[in-house]
Amino acid sequence: MGCIPTKHAGQSPDSLDRREAVALAAETSCEKVNLPDFVNIASGTPFTVSEVEALHDLFRKISNTVVKDNLIHKEEFHVALFRNKKKQNLFVDRLFDLFDQKGNGVIEFGEFVRSLSVFHPGAPEEQKAAFAFKLYDLRQTGFIERNELKEMVCALLDESELDITSDAVEMIVDRTFDQADTKGDGRIDQEEWTAFAKDNPYVLRNMTLPYLKDITMVFPSFVVHSEISEAD
């Protein structure tokens, strides 16, 4: 028996009103207490319930690679992102902290889906820009500072095979600051960043992962295990 009653199969979360969704969530939690509330998690994201269920298969895999507890620990996140268990990395740390919305040291399934949803092609640009600002605001001061940007660039270069000299990194960071720090105070605030991202949409293009648009089609192996039948 599926987790969601047959009468609801084929409906996207958008087609369920809130009351129905809450009732459905209650039924769901009664039937299988160990499964996440897929309907509730899908609401407020561009993902359908089936796609959230597909993401759960992926989540289960990642969250059991080191510690088998269905939670993503930083080491598991590092391995999944970079395929290695290298030393601590600033870039991974910051990305992990953004996914770990509760700040309890692990990424839960709901956090995983909500964070990934920012990279969905259907997510609003404002949401992508806000997430990116938090990523660059390494020490969470409310500003992007020059040294933070440089540290981030160095950290990602350290994990990549790109060979960029220290002088070139300085030039890249200087040039970026010249472009975005319109107030000229040596730091980029939210207002400057928003304006810069609006005028230069290419800085947000990597905040979209095209295959998230229809994850059950791109990753059909997930559908094999799906318990929710969702028609067009």
């Binding site: 999944a80 990116a132 970026t176």
Partner: peptide, 25 residues
């Protein structure tokens, strides 16, 4: 020419590429 790169683009490119790795886990 690396100088043509923007630091924001470089960082977000890395975030996008590496998050893509999640799906090959």
């Amino acid at each position: 020419e690396p100088v043509a790169l923007n630091a924001f683009e470089l960082i977000s490119m890395s975030a996008g590429l590496n998050l893509g790795n999640l799906f090959d886990s």
